[in-house]
């Protein structure tokens, strides 16, 4: 009895353990895929899976920070920001390398500004994050429609396309870019003042405020960062697909939240980290790819995705009895 209680407690509380579970499930899913189809575990396919995960992983980077910042933090506008970023980069650069730099700069600035609006609405006007970012996503979708008049033009400049689909020494560039981002985010969260304060504020805002942490700046800035990462994702997505259409980012909205949670970051804020999200993103991508490999229709895929998510959640997001 005491033993099972202890196990349960550890399963419930330690994010390191949920990370272990996520890694285990990802490996298991990959093995299952390999059992059905040898090609699934071939090095090239595994690298390809990682490259696809990198887009979800980057989209979920901002989500991780926002969730860590606490106060029911969540960013549902990342899908719309990704769509807008892909469209902006594609139309401004118009497929020319020379225009790529200004296109990227404009896109990143717009992403940060939209994130700032989210943050201000959430912190100053006290709109719940879920609703604020949701409202903003319809505004941003509106901006996309106005900007493109319903038909996005242009394409990825060759340099960006090479970054999105090319390889170096057999490793896709996307993976390398993602690895760099991961390293930076991990370092920031672990060693920089911003990262440490983010955990403090996420865990207990009043305590943060009383110890003189600039909570307002920190929270608003975190939403701005989420906008920045979404913009990066949109730019790389354009490179990956080479062309763009409306609402390409929508598929990332809820999976990004799922990746964060599956990676062991608590939705209540203050506990978790980006490495877990990386594993979560890989897990979700492998699962989706496995279901496609098994020739499952969209309906079955949706059902199985949901069931797996429920099972994973019931393993490590169980709440204490007297919540």
């Amino acid at each position: 009895m005491a033993f099972t209680e202890r196990v349960k407690q550890r399963l419930g509380q330690s994010s390191r353990n949920s990370l272990g579970i996520a890694v285990g499930v990802a490996v298991l899913l990959t093995a299952v895929g390999g059992a059905f189809n040898r090609g699934f575990v071939s090095p090239s396919n595994l690298l390809n899976l990682l490259a696809i995960s990198s887009l979800l992983g980057l989209a979920a980077a901002g989500q991780t920070l926002v969730v860590l910042s606490g106060g029911e933090g969540i960013d549902l506008s990342i899908g719309a920001v990704i769509s807008l970023s892909a469209v902006l980069t594609s139309q401004i650069s118009n497929g020319q390398n020379g225009l790529l730099l200004p296109a990227v700069v404009v896109t990143l600035v717009v992403g940060v500004l939209l994130g700032l609006v989210n943050g201000l609405g959430i912190y100053l006007a006290q709109v719940p994050p879920l609703i604020m970012t949701l409202g903003m996503s319809s505004v941003i979708e509106g901006i996309v429609l106005v900007y493109t008049q319903g038909q996005p033009k242009g394409q990825a400049p060759p340099f960006l396309a090479a970054l999105g689909t090319g390889q170096v020494l057999g490793i896709p560039w996307l993976i390398i870019v993602w690895a760099m981002f991961t390293l930076i985010i991990w370092y920031v969260l672990k060693y920089l003042v911003y990262g440490r304060l983010l955990f403090l504020v996420g865990d207990n805002r009043s305590a943060g405020r009383m110890s003189g942490v600039p909570v307002a700046k920190l929270v608003v800035g975190t939403y701005a960062l989420s906008g920045f990462f979404s913009a990066c994702t949109g730019i790389l997505f354009l490179g990956y697909t080479n062309t763009t259409y409306l609402n390409i980012g929508d598929v990332y909205i809820l999976p990004s939240v799922a990746a964060v949670v599956v990676g062991g970051t608590a939705l209540s804020g203050g506990r978790g980290g980006y490495i877990g999200t990386v594993v979560g993103a890989i897990l979700l991508t492998v699962l989706d790819s496995l279901l496609t490999t098994l020739h499952m229709g969209e309906a079955t895929r949706g059902i199985i995705n949901g069931v797996v998510l429920l099972v994973l959640l019931s393993i490590y997001t169980r709440q204490p009895k007297d919540a």
Partner: peptide, 27 residues
């Protein structure tokens, strides 16, 4: 049942259920 008795956060449960039920509807 899952939210109150298994005690998993409502946001996540109903999100996963959304995926499941949409799949059922599509079937």
């Amino acid at each position: 049942f899952i939210i109150s008795i298994v005690r998993i956060p409502a946001l996540l449960v109903t999100f996963a259920m959304m995926s499941i039920i949409n799949g059922v509807a599509l079937a």
